[in-house]
Each structure stands twice: as C-alpha cells, then as structure tokens.
Design a protein around this nucleic acid. Structure first.
Lengths: 336, 336
DNA sequence: CTGAAAGCGCTTACAG
DNA sequence: CTGAAAGCGCTTACAG
C-alpha cells in the first residue's frame, strides 16, 4: 500500500510537507504543492482515514441511524441527510436499527468506535444502552423524527398534532363518528404522541374514545393488517380508519382489499406520512403530510451547530392534512 | 477519553494483556479476563476502531454503495445486505450514489480511506475513477444488480431475460402487438440488458420493433411519465407498456392517470421489480419479480469468500412474471 | 516555508 | 500466561 512516505519520496519533500499539502495547510510553497499533487496523482494515493483520525480530532464523517430503512419516509430522510451532509463536507455512514434496540446499540457502538464527528439518530428504547454512552461521551447528537423523553438532546420532529386534528375534524365533517385508530408502538415518542393527538382530537370533536377503536401496532405493515382485522370483527366497526404511519396504512389497505371492503362512502382511510404513490391508488389516499427533506436538511444543520460548540434549540416541523378520494365522500349509512 | 491504558491500569494488568482480553485471544488467565471485563464495564470503554484498524489488517466493516436509496428495490437490498453482514460479524456502511458517478466516487474514496474490508456496489459509469482504484488495490469487491463489462469482478445479478420474455409472450397472448418499452439508461448494464431482452422477445414473437415504441428513461419516476407522454402523442399509441424498473412504472402510472387512461382491456402495464404495494393498486400491477433478499444475502456470501482469498463465480438469480389485473384482460379494439 | 521528532491508541511478535 | 517495546500512517507543535 502506498503511504504518505511514498508520496513524499517521489515528490522529493518530507512527509510533513506532503501532509501539509494534502490537508491544504497554506504554509507550503507553490512548488511543493505541484510536486506533491503530481506524486499523489501518479501513485493514486488515498490517505488512510484511520491514521488521520487517530491524530486529528475529526473524521469528517457523521453517522445516521434510522429505525427502518424500508420505510419510505426514512429512505427519503436518509437521502436528504446524505445530500445535506455532502454539501457540508461530511460523508454519512448509514445504519439501520430495524426497529430493534439491540441492533441500534450495535450500530451506535460501531459509530462511536469509528469516531464519527456526530450522530443523527431516530432513537429506540428508553435511553439506556449505547444512547447513554453517546451522551456521556458528549458526542454531538441530534434526534430526528423521534425523541427520548428526559434526554436533553436537540431534535427535529414533526408537530403531529395539527395534522391529526385536521384529519379527525375532516372525517367528522364527512359524517364519521366511529373513527378507528391504528397506533404506533407506545414506547416510541411518535407512536405515543400521535395516539395522544388522536384522543385529544376526538374529545374536542365531542366524540367518545372507545378502547375498541384503538389498535396498538408497531409501525410495520403486518400490524396494520391486524388492526383492520380486529376492527372488522367488531359488532359495530369503525367507518373511518386513521393509521399512524405509511407502512401500517399499506397493511391496512391490503387487509381491506382482501376482505372485500371498498374505500369510499362507507369506509374512509387516512394515513400519516405522505408517500409519492399514495396519490396513485384508486381511490387516492388522504394523508397527513410532513417533509422528510426538510427534516433531514434541518437535522444536518443542527448537528453542524452542535459540532461547532453551539447549543441549538429543537425544531418542530409542520404537518398538514391532504384530502384525497379515500376520505372525501360523505358517509352513507350501512345497510342493516 | 478512556483508552486501553486506563482499562489496564484499573484492572491491574498491562495494556498488552488488556488488548488480548478485548480481542478474545485465548492466551489470557481467567482472572485477567474477569478484571479487564469489570474495568471495561466500569469505564464504559469502547475501543478506538481507528487505532485498531491501523495495526490489524481488518476493520470488520464493509461498504455498500447503492445507486438510489429511494428506489424500494435498493432499500430492500440494503436491508438484506445489512442483516446478512451483521450475522457474519460485519457492520455495513451504506452510501448512496444517487445515480451520479461523481457521488459514487466520493463514497468509494471515503470507503477506501476508511479501509473497509470489502465493498458491495451497484456500479455506475465505465469503470474509470474510483472503481478502477478499488480494483487496482485489490480491495474485495462484489457487483450487485449491475455490472461493468470488461471488469473481472464477481457479481450477483438478475437474469432479466426470462422475466421479460415471459412478459412479452403474455402480452402477445392477450392480443397486444404494439408493446411500448420504457428503457433504463443504456450506460448501465441492467438498462442495456433489459432493452436487449425486450428486443429479442419481440422478435421471437414475430413482432416488429419500432423505434417509436422504445423510450429511453433513466430509472427515475419522471422519465416514466415522459415515456408515457411520448407514447400517447403517437398517431398509433402502444396498447401495452413495459417499464424497466419500478420507479419508471410509478411515473408511467401517474401520467396515465393524469391523462385519464384506465388500465384494463385497452391499455396494459407491466413493471420490472416487484414492490409490495404494487399488488394493492387497482388494477393490481403485473410485475417481473426478482428477490432483493436473495441478492443481498448472496452478495454478502460472495464477498466473504473473496475476503477469505477465494475466487467465487458470479451468480445469476431468476426473474419471473407475476400476472395481475393490469395486464390480464384481453385487448379490445379501440374505438375509431 | 520546511524537516525531524513525538505521539495518537491500539496490536503483536518476542522473550520470558 | 504476561509485559516491554516497536510500529501501523498520519499530523502537528517546535525549531529553524
């Protein structure tokens, strides 16, 4: 393997000078710069990031840990973070917790060991394990999408409340009173907050919140199917369903289809998270939309501030109901 | 920061012994093991991967570079690689080329600098740039999904031919003779191979391949829309459309919907790549299916073999037509 | 502007 | 089974 010594030898300078040229230190002569540049090109030299990181404080690398890369929202988020990080001169190491705290800890440990300059994480669990290590080591950290209560970490989250309030109000206006809710896991902040928002919205619409109309899912597709299955087996099923994320909405839709239930004037569906092709479904799916692009770009911005020693405030991004055909028909009474 | 010296001091052993315990070297006494383990736990010590990598030959880290993380096929592939790598004791660093050769080179350089033990890449471009460096350095490399011709790198690809032949034959059986094809970029092997497969399949069905019925897209959604737009402006538009990947199929569908064209007895659509929710569309979308899970698991397996000094053969995975409602009606003649 | 030297945090022959 | 020592490939005060 070629090292900086080889480059220095070929250029006829010391390794120190070669290093200065490589890192853009202005204390170099134009002649040295040319000779070193030529040697680097000739040898196709790539500096060893490990050795470099061992001496300097930073690696120009950040970690991004998402909870489920197959969830389109997180794929979009990953893309947005990567692009923003690249512009800021950082390479992103992406890890996927796969909704498991153990896997989250594994990746977090790997990122700590890699000495990333900072970490953006959609956290799982209660803040024990590697999340705790992260904070104890004062590694610059930003929470995205979700937070862990009690931890003083800057975050970028969505104000789910507004969108959910709009959705419930809209469904009520369409004549629905039995609005079923497929919730996310309650040990995840978004799961918990969105359920609370639903309960508040129902109450402020003057509706009774029945335990039977709340199904506890896990943000994955199968639990959306299970939720619909449970709802359909009720003596008096809900006429509208609100799913707390896109994957559960997909699962819900699959089960509705399988059971022969058509979306329309008797059954409405609204999903949290806007996915491009939701608009292509027949009927097109109403959604509560929030921007993965904004979330990713903002997270990188906050992380840069933390790396620079600042203490940025947390940011809440808006959510908004987009009404499409899946919920826009007035409820017609069911046949007896 | 705590180092192995702190651990050694607290445990009352030398750094050498602490290092041996940490790396599972059997030449350690049970007592040393206990004392070091206790010290590690007490100090929450995480070894510096950089320093470790600088001495030892491997980092237990692999790089995965996909061409577009927002393409569900690659998100599934990333998930599969990550899980298989984890089981083999590797952490995956995921990069996203975003269908740009410049960005591919950036990530590849970063991965080389990080001294990953191996790289799995869905390559762009002609094999110059950092792909060349990769090979010159003899860094264990596997191509997935795509290849670069002329490079002797083990690969895991899909046999697109079978699926496309089945799709064309099926459409012909349904009465279609004007079958439009929305192709991927021709400088990418999958784009090129699939177009060739279409041409061959058309010929063997005795159909004329008209240039007007081939649209050159770029594997992204917008180009699918553009393809449909072009087709619809023909004097005699195709009655069936085959799109070379899922994103272009989504774009195609969006444009068909916008133009008020219903899928059914007058217009059929088949997509390459099976995405979970394609089955939920109305009508459900016919697809040429291939498994991202198998591809990811196989790629990790091949990479392990290369890392171990073996020379595995390339693997071709099957593709298969799945007929759904979007193409299963017999063609009815258009009104004049 | 440049070079010699020390050192980042580990690991690994070597000797015992 | 253990420790002292050398060294991985860089960077960075230090002195000139």
């Amino acid at each position: 393997v070629t090292t900086i010594k080889d480059v220095a030898a070929l250029a006829g300078v010391s390794p120190a000078t070669a290093s200065r040229v490589l890192s853009g230190n202005p204390a170099t002569s134009p002649e040295s710069r040319d000779r070193v540049a030529a040697a680097v090109a000739h040898l196709d030299f790539k500096p060893n990031a490990q050795a470099r990181a061992l001496r300097s404080a930073h690696t120009q690398t950040i970690g991004l840990l998402v909870s489920d890369i197959r969830n389109p929202f997180f794929a979009d988020l990953a893309h947005a973070v990567e692009q923003a990080a690249l512009e800021a001169g950082y390479v992103t190491l992406l890890g996927n917790a796969n909704e498991q705290t153990s896997q989250q800890d594994l990746y977090l440990d790997a990122m700590i060991s890699q000495r990333v300059d900072g970490i953006i994480v959609a956290p799982q669990g209660d803040g024990s394990g590697s999340i705790k290590s992260l904070i104890a080591r004062k590694i610059p950290t930003i929470f995205v999408d979700r937070v862990i209560s009690g931890l003083d970490v800057p975050s970028v989250t969505t104000d789910s409340d507004t969108g959910i309030r709009q959705a419930v109000a809209h469904l009520v206006a369409m004549g629905h009173t039995r609005i079923g809710y497929i919730a996310g896991p309650q040990n995840v902040s978004t799961g918990h907050d969105r359920l609370n928002a639903y309960v508040r919205a129902m109450k402020s619409a003057g509706l009774i919140v029945e335990p039977d109309l709340m199904f506890y899912g896990d943000f994955q597709a199968d639990s959306g199917s299970a939720g619909v299955h449970a709802f359909l087996s009720l003596a008096d099923p809900p006429t509208a369903i609100l799913a707390a994320d896109s994957l559960m909405a997909i699962g819900a839709l699959a089960m509705l289809t399988r059971q022969g239930v058509q979306l329309g004037s008797r059954t409405a569906l609204v999903a949290f998270d806007d996915i491009e092709w939701f608009a292509l479904l027949k009927p097109a799916l109403s959604v509560i939309s929030h921007s993965a692009e904004d979330m990713g770009a903002t997270a990188v911005q906050l992380l840069k501030q933390v790396i620079d020693g600042e203490s940025p405030s947390s940011v809440q991004l808006p959510s908004e109901l987009i009404v499409r055909a899946s919920s826009s028909e007035r409820l017609r009474a069911r046949r007896k």
